[in-house]
Structure formats: C-alpha cells, structure tokens
Design a protein around this nucleic acid. Structure first.
Lengths: 190, 190, 190, 190
DNA sequence: CATGAATGAGTCTTCATTCAT
DNA sequence: TATGAATGAAGACTCATTCAT
C-alpha cells in the first residue's frame, strides 16, 4: 500500500491514526493532524477531501492490515484449535498494541454511511475467515459460532483497554481461556 | 424514579435518549433536545448543567434500568441454564427494542472521565451479577466466563442493529444458540 | 429615605450596592442580588423595573448620601481652609470605607442616558457646594477651582483603591497634603 | 508599531478602539468590530484570543502612544512651568481629540487582572515622568504632587467629554489655569 | 405582595474548508 | 504540489424578564 500511495499519504494516515485514536473523531482537529504530520493544513485536502473521508481512509487501512495479518497468521496453524488460538492471539495483541488509542474503538463520526459500510464490510470479512475455518471443521452454524468467538475476544478487549494493571503476559492467558471455552462449547454442540 | 425526579426531568431524558441514541452525542444539538421535549432551550439548563452532564444522566438512568430489570428477571430462573437464558433474552431484547437508537452505543463524549467511570461501573455490575451466578454453579474463573457470555451476546447485537432482515423471532434463536454454546463450553472446562 | 421607601426597597439597594460595587454592572446578576437580599428574583421587579433602573436607584441613593453628608460636615468648619479640609476628609474617607467596592466607580451601564444624567447632576451639585465656598472666599473662577480640588482628591483615591499597603492613617496625610497644595495654589492665583 | 505588527493587527485595534470607546466593552460585539474592520469574525481570533485580550491589546497600544507622545513633548519645554504646560496640553488635547469615545474611559471589563495591571502600570509610568520633573525642580513629595496635577487635569476632562459647548480654544484656557494653579501651589508649599 | 420555573433572544467562540500565492 | 490566512456557519450557554400560582 505504501508503495501505491505516496509517502505523504501514509504520513497523514499515521498522524490521523494516533490522534483520532487518542481523542476520537470529534475531538481531533484537522489542524492537529496537519501539525503532527508536519505539513500544512491545506495540504490535507490535496489527499483527502474531508475530515470524514480521512477518517474512513485511516480506518480502511487499519482494517485491511488487520485482515491481512490474521489471514497470514492462520496459514501457520495446523489444527482448528491452533488456528483459533492464532486468531485469538492476533485479535488481543492488536488491541494490546493499541491500548493507548482507546477512543478509536468507540468514536467514529455519526451519520456517515460510508463509514458504517466500511465497518460492516470489515466485520463480514473477519467473520467469514473464521466461519470458513469452522465450516471446514464440520460445525453447523459456522457464522454464528464465528461471531460468538469474536464476541468473546472483543469483550476481553475491555480489560486490556481499561484495566491499568493488565500486563502483556495476561494476553496469552486470555487467549488460552477464550480458545478453550469456545472449542469446548463447539465440540459439544448438538 | 419518575416520582423522585420531576416529570420534566424524565421528559428531557426521554428526548435526550432518542436523539443521542439516533445521532450520537456530537451530532445532537441541545436545541433539538429542547424541541423534542417541548420546552425552551434555557429550561434544559435548569435541570442539567451541560450537554455532557445531560448525556451522563441519561446514560445513568438507562444503565440502572438495565441492571434493575436483569436482576428482577434472574429471580425467575430455576437452573443455571434457565437463568443464563433469561439474561441472554434480556440483553438481546434490550437492543432489539432500541434498534433504532443504534448510535448510542458508539457515540459518547470523549475525554469525559465521569462518563468513562459510569460505563466501567455499569460493566462491573453487570459482570458481577452473572459471575456470582456462575460462581454458585461451581465454575472456576467466573468473571472471565461472565465476560465471555456478555461478549457473545454483544456480538449478536450487531446483527440486530445492522441486519435489516432481522426479525423478532430471531432474537429467541440467538438466545438459545448463545446459551447452549456457552453452557457447553463451561461444562467441559478443565 | 428608608422611612419613605419600604424596608425591602433599601434591602435590595444594599445588596445591589455591594455586588455592583464589587463586580460592576455587567458582571452582577439579578439573581445574585436577589439571593443576597434574601428575596426571590421576581420580587426585584416589584420594586425596580429593570436592572438599569435598579443600578440608577442605587447610585442615586449613594450620591444623595454623599452630598448630604458633605453638606452637613461643611457646617462645622470655621475658616475656608478648615472647610476644605473637611471636604477632603469626607471625600477620601468615603472611598476608604468603600475600598472593597472598587468597581462601582468604573463600571456602569453604557448607553443609559438616565445614568449619565445622574452622574452629571451629582458632579454639578458637588462642584457647586465647593464653588460656593470658594466664591465666598473671593476667588475668581470658583468652578474651575472646585473641579481642580475634586480632581486632586479623586486621584488620591487611586492609592486608596489599589495600594494594598494604604492604611487609615494615610488618609489624613493626603487630606493635609491636598488641602495645603490647593490653598497655596489658590492664594497666589493672580 | 505598525511595521512590527501587521497591518491587519492595527486595523482591528483601530476598529476596536472606536467601538469600545463609543459603546464600552460589554456593549460592543465582536461581530461589530469585525464588520468595522472589514474582516470576518473568525479572523479576529487569529490575532486576539478573546474579547478581553483584544480590549487589553487596544488599551496597551493607546497607553503606549500616550506615554510616548508625552515623553517626546516634554523634551521641548525649557522651564519646569513650560514643561508642565506641555504635559497639561497633551493630556487635555488627548481627551479633546477622543471626545467621541467617551465610554472608553469608563468601561472596561471587570475582574480582568491583566487589564487592572495594565492600568496601574500606565498610571505608574505617567506619574513617574511627572514626578521626576518635579523632583528635579527640588520639590518634596514629587509623587503626590504629580498625582495631584494629573488629578486636576483629569477632572478638567469631564468638561471636555460632557459639555457640548466646549470648544477647542477652551482647551488652552484650562491648560493655563491648571498649570498656574498647580505651580503656585507647589511654589508655596512648606 | 411574593415566588421561582420557564422563556428565548443574544453572543462568543470554534474549526472544517477554501483559495490566492 | 504546498501553504496558511481568511472565512462564516453553527451551537452551547447565559441571564434579564415574565407570569401563573
């Protein structure tokens, strides 16, 4: 991506990621993003037509990285359980690495259908990746199962973001816990 | 509550609930809330000192109702599984009933520590209620289990909010699915 | 005056005097005046038709007291110099006693012709009292002389209001200084 | 000054001077200042961070001009009396030239310590200039004398501002009167 | 007379966006 | 491409005043 889009394009998205993430969409000013990117305010508009569009582009890049990485990671696992474990690890590490950008996960612009579309599309792809794995494993209702797994992981995220005593080691513990719980639930499904 | 706080107090919170819920904190104007409540703009400030404080009060009322209702509902269930089913049903129906006020759950004012505190406190109480049940059932790590269950339910919420074909009957299906998955997972935990 | 006007009328003016004096016209709220007077906001409007009118009434009462007291005081002095000394003393003590109500003398409502009229009328009367004395003493241009004397006193006021080390004893020193300077200036006028 | 600060900076201060002067701080709207300066409202805030700060900056520029001009003028006078006459003339002409901006001298924002500081600093400098002159002339208590002289002049200002029949010729008459009175008073001080 | 809840006109300030250079 | 000074629409909040009780 960075080779397709110019350096400055990514520079801006980096700045946007940090500021939107730390302060949310509405509490972040275009001028702050320009400052942090080390460019002039007007220059932002040479790359992005509006604040909303900048936010959407930043989100898109982030979503794509997330999906790309998880897809790569899943090629390593042998068994289903190992692959689920890899997915869980990726999901939770992602939030652990970004734990200072809390707001990102709560604050997006309202009434922006493009944004909503982006999120739904991301979720659909994420779920499909997991659902395909579960489908291969022979489970029924693979989509609902996939959503459930993601749900478990996403709730664990709360601890990462809000519990100041949360340590890196704890990530792995949650991974094991979530994977076990989920696998056991799946195995004994009627 | 309505007998403690004046009628107008609840009238305002009702209007705020609908508008903040539909459009989010930042895209909702105080004047709109006043209009919908059928009062003058200045009157809002006789009851709430700022937009932030109004939002916080609205959230608090909503959280309290949620917890109150779930606590009541749980007294009915006999077995653990029945009780979990009641909780799941309550959780999903809550979002189903409010499916037009989507934004509420994404859009809150940033940098408002009071607000953050409120959310964390709500989550802690919600988790505790479920964790206590699971603890009584003899399960280890009841808190992590409770969070996992809430996570599953909360991800099911996505379908409710974003899938336009989602019907009332589907709620019960998810309740059954989530409860089964979770119970099986718990039962076979090491 | 208090016998003519009701108790509450003076109660309100007392509160207004303190608050307008301490904070100025624009930074004083009608609600604060009501609070300090221990009455309801609406009650203010039974006695005064507007904030401006309340301010004007307060000023009028204060001006009248000032002039009344100075007129009384001047009956005691024997020589012109003694009488000037009495006037100076009265002027400076007035401000010394009210040194916490500084703002009063800077902050009055703009664009209020009634108010401007009030001030000019007060000044005219004050000057006339002194000018008559000087006229009796045989000085030419008694009005300009009177204004000059008041000017000297009023500038001394600045020390009283702004110099935190100013003590009560200093008042008398300024009285002597101002009177001497002025008398000497007058005596040797061509 | 205009070369240090940009053109627009002075343009805004000019507009502010006229409007604050004519109507006072509280009765002047930022939008009016922008209109008169021929710029957009938002532009004001590129140069001044708040209404208070704009007022303070305008006052500072005015004070500095006043002091600069009086310091220049005083270099011309030979004798002490001539120099006092120059000072008096400057003081009264200043107000005569600005007689339409009456309110300026009464209306400043309350509770603004920066503003109060500015005024006190100005007065201190003004007084010092005159006091130094008087000190050189061998008079005792030069500061009190200086204040007295300024007081006389400042009271003469009232006629200029409020007497509609006051003419330009009258300025010189007051200058002579005030200087004579004050010099005679000084000369015969014990 | 007294109250105080309700009103709504009024104003400062912000900030996304533009455009002449 | 890049700049950043200028714009002006928009909105939170205040507070003098009213009036039903």
């Amino acid at each position: 991506m960075s080779q397709v889009q110019g350096d400055k394009w990514n520079l801006i998205l980096d700045a946007a990621y940090e500021l939107f993430g730390a302060n949310g969409f509405y509490e972040t000013k275009m001028s702050e993003i320009a400052d942090r990117a080390g460019i002039a305010k007007g220059t932002l508009y040479l790359y992005f037509s509006s604040k909303e569009q900048l936010f959407a582009a930043m989100t898109k890049r982030d979503f794509e990285q997330f999906l790309e990485q998880i897809a790569n990671g899943l090629q390593q696992g042998e068994s289903l359980k190992e692959r689920l474990s890899v997915a869980a690890s990726h999901h939770l590490r992602y939030f652990y690495d970004r734990r200072d950008y809390t707001k990102l996960f709560f604050m997006m612009p309202n009434n922006d259908p493009e944004m909503l579309q982006e999120i739904q599309s991301f979720m659909a792809q994420y779920i499909r990746i997991l659902a395909d794995m579960l489908d291969d494993g022979g489970f029924t209702e693979p989509k609902l199962l996939a959503k459930s797994f993601v749900g478990i992981l996403d709730m664990m995220k709360m601890d990462i973001l809000f519990d100041p005593t949360f340590k890196e080691e704890d990530v792995q513990q949650r991974v094991v816990f979530a994977t076990n719980l989920f696998m056991n639930g799946c195995m004994h499904q009627k």
